[in-house]
Design a protein around this nucleic acid. Structure first.
Length: 297
DNA sequence: TTCCAGGCCCGGG
DNA sequence: CCCGGGCATGGA
């Protein structure tokens, strides 16, 4: 990977194991819009980014060297060697190969803790396009305007302080439905420092999940997603309906197993890179509709 | 119209 | 521990 700073743009050359479209669309993140093929607008860490990929070059428009080094390099997980991750996962596991090869360019984004927490509380019983709508609405109503591309305005996800301006009714106005009190509860936990990001990052994934699950509306799955996507715990293995179907199909001979059984299998089998395996499997299984009764594609 | 979505809470076996 | 019902909202 070589970085070039050209005019107002940052261009990354010789990218390996990176595909912008796959990384944005694989279901880990909800605060972005597709502008065109391989071209996206997104928001993270208080900044708006207009990015596009052509072959092994990634263009970050209007991005300074400082911003790339401080934010986007880490955000896209570019400082990590995915070749090593893939060979670790594929060693002694041929069942994962097809998923990794098809979804070869997925990177696990390092997202902000608070946004990830609220986003995955919203995600329960919702489809990804709906989640994106709600995240955009909350950002529009409570966050700060950041920029615009392709006629779409981008607003930063509100800070815990900004979102504390919203009461439960106001959160319902954002179409969060029965999740409104959950979000309210989570904002209180953060603002009152009942949970602290710094501590969650240090305490280990088990303790981390336990603390997150004290928030009403946060169960095992959401806690695992927040640990993986928002707190850097790459060993976390979230089990949702898709992972359940895919794992049963690939590793359990199609037989029914509980979420807890599937998670402990994933944790044991994939170890420190469980989160990567999970994301390859999730995206692959969902796009191929693996384990679904009527495959309509 | 009916069904279901990157689940979770709650009550009852 | 392991069910099942209920839950807001919107798209298929």
């Amino acid at each position: 990977m070589d970085v070039e700073y050209k005019g107002k743009d940052t261009i990354i050359h010789n990218l390996k194991d990176f595909d912008l479209g796959q990384t944005m669309e694989c279901g880990q993140c909800f605060h972005f819009q597709k502008i065109d093929d391989d071209e996206y607008g997104m928001s993270a860490y208080g900044k708006f980014l207009h990015a596009a990929q052509k072959d092994d070059k990634l263009y970050l428009f209007d991005t300074t060297k400082e911003e790339f080094e401080k934010i986007w390099c880490h955000y896209f997980d570019l400082d990590r060697d995915y070749g090593e991750i893939k060979s670790f996962l594929l060693k002694e596991d041929e069942k994962l190969r097809e998923a990794v090869e098809k979804m070869w360019g997925v990177r696990i984004l390092n997202q902000e803790f608070f946004e990830t927490l609220i986003s995955f509380i919203i995600s329960q019983n919702k489809q990804i396009p709906h989640i994106k709508q709600i995240v955009a609405r909350i950002s529009h109503d409570y966050g700060k305007y950041q920029g615009s591309v392709g006629g779409i305005d981008f607003y930063g996800f509100p800070t815990p302080q900004q979102l504390s301006q919203a009461d439960i009714d106001a959160l319902r106005e954002c179409k969060t439905g029965f999740r409104a009190p959950y979000i309210y509860n989570a904002v209180e936990f953060v603002n009152n420092e009942i949970i602290k990001e710094e501590n969650l990052r240090k305490c280990g994934v088990d303790e981390c999940r336990e603390q997150l699950m004290k928030i009403k509306g946060v169960g095992m799955k959401v806690a695992n997603c927040v640990s993986l996507f928002g707190l850097g715990y790459r060993e976390a293995f979230p089990v949702d309906v898709w992972i359940k179907r895919i794992m049963q199909s690939l590793y359990f001979d199609g037989k029914e197993h509980s979420n807890a059984e599937i998670e402990s299998y994933g944790v044991e089998h994939f170890g420190k890179y469980g989160g990567y395996a999970q994301q390859y499997l999730f995206y692959y299984g969902k796009s191929e509709k693996i384990g679904l009764k009527n495959k309509t594609n």
